[in-house]
Amino acid sequence: MLPTVRYLILWLTEGCNLRCAYCYRPNQGAPKAMSREVVDQALTLAARSGRFFHVQISGGEPTLEPDLIAYTAEALQRRRLPATLAVQTNGTRLTSELIHLFRRYAIQVGISLDGPPPIQENLRGGAAKTVAGIRRLEAAGVPFRITAVVSEASIGTLDLLPLFVGTFRWCQGIALDLLTVKGHALQGHVAPPKHHSLRVGLQRFYRSVLFVNQHRHQPLRLRELDRLRRAKASSSTSVFCPAAKGESLAVRPDGSVFPCGQTCGEKDWACGTVWHPDTTRLRRLCGLAQPRGADCATCHIRRFCPGECPSRLIYNTAHHASLVCTMYQTLWELWEKPNGIPDGSKAQRGKGGEK
């Protein structure tokens, strides 16, 4: 029996108009686009449990297939499925038609942006077009979030990212993805941050968020800190992602399925197809969420730590895997300081706002 799917990832295409220094897309000839039949069958699998699920449109660069984005949104609405829909894009191809589509179907938008334009240009390319895309979202009043890949090449300027995106009213928050060492990253041109670099970079980044949120009506949220806060509030250990619970399903354009987006295209992680999924293999990432560092037993956030991305634990060395500990511990220590928090609530109290 297929496990409950709470997170469905649709790789609409393996094509991309950029060449990121750490891209992990499989290089298997000419890019292919997903058929509507694969979209429909993937939605059927996710809807089988009758429970709410989230659909993440990804790739490659999904905006290369705008008609498929529209079809997916229309299919969810037509079938009245209990789901939300989001798209992760590099932002370089955001036309007025796409932005209208996002608004019409309440599609959540994530923009991949690793830092200020020079860093973005160096690591991904197309920086000017990405900024132009962000400006179009802002002009249209479409909410969006930023996802930044954190590497040694970007951590030194990470504090500039909130200062830039904080000027956009409709930017809702920032998510930090530690670099996964696979694909192009194996060539050594870009590496995960060092522990010291990560700690210092996060401290500077956090101060920038505090500064920006003092001047915004709606504060920038930090995904990683929100994870910790929710787990602490519920007094329970959380998990990094649905894949760590066997509740994730990633689908390639040809209909083959994998436990999560980062394993997509890896033969060793193939789990059949949307027509004949291997339910046992889809749960292979379960129980791999904890970094298992030597200091876990004495860590002050161990009771509510969400652990590490299970697939990143597979691809990164033990030294790199423990970077997540540095990230969570640093953010939590900064959160506990009495001089404010990145969601702006303490800043508001300090300024005489609502308690």
Rank of each mutant, 00 (worst) to 15 (best):
Y22M: 01
G352W: 07
H189A: 07
P306Y: 07
V39E: 01
V274M: 05
Y315N: 03
F144V: 06
L198F: 00
L178K: 07
G352H: 09
I314Q: 11
L288I: 11
A185I: 00
V87F: 02
G126K: 12
L101W: 03
T44A: 15
C16M: 04
I155N: 00
D114R: 03
R135H: 13
T92W: 08
I9P: 00
F53Q: 05
L220A: 11
G173N: 06
D40K: 11
Y328N: 08
G156T: 01
T89K: 08
A347I: 13
L85N: 03
R227P: 01
R216A: 13
P242L: 12
W11S: 15
L123G: 02
S311H: 10
T92K: 06
Q120G: 04
A347Y: 10
I119C: 01
L179I: 00
T72H: 05
E138T: 12
G287I: 13
I301M: 11
D295H: 14
R25G: 04
T147K: 14
A231C: 15
E61C: 06
T280E: 14
R230L: 15
L160H: 13
H54F: 06
P82C: 03
R252M: 14
K129A: 15
Q56V: 06
G91S: 06
A318M: 12
G188R: 06
L313F: 10
L210R: 10
I99Q: 00
A185P: 01
A139W: 11
C286L: 12
Q218P: 09
P66D: 06
D343K: 03
K346Y: 14
F168D: 12
L85Y: 08
D268Y: 02
A318N: 12
E74Q: 15
P26R: 05
E224A: 03
V209D: 02
L76Q: 02
D226S: 15
D278W: 12
Q88M: 09
S58Q: 09
G293M: 07
Q41S: 11
L222P: 10
Q262V: 09
E121F: 07
C16D: 05
R145S: 14
V149N: 00
L85S: 00
K267P: 11
G141T: 12
L137S: 12
C286M: 14
P342K: 04
L334P: 04
T180R: 10
A83R: 10
G307K: 10
T13N: 03
L220R: 07
P253L: 03
V142Q: 14
F205T: 05
R169Y: 13
V131E: 11
Q203L: 01
A73V: 08
A270Y: 03
I99F: 04
A153D: 03
Q88T: 13
S208C: 04
L222S: 09
I57N: 01
C20W: 08
T273Y: 06
D295S: 08
S154E: 05
P277W: 10
Q214F: 10
A33V: 07
C325T: 07
Q262S: 07
I155T: 00
S322E: 14
L94S: 08
G340R: 08
R136Y: 11
E97H: 09
L178V: 02
A243P: 13
L179E: 01
P310L: 07
A128N: 09
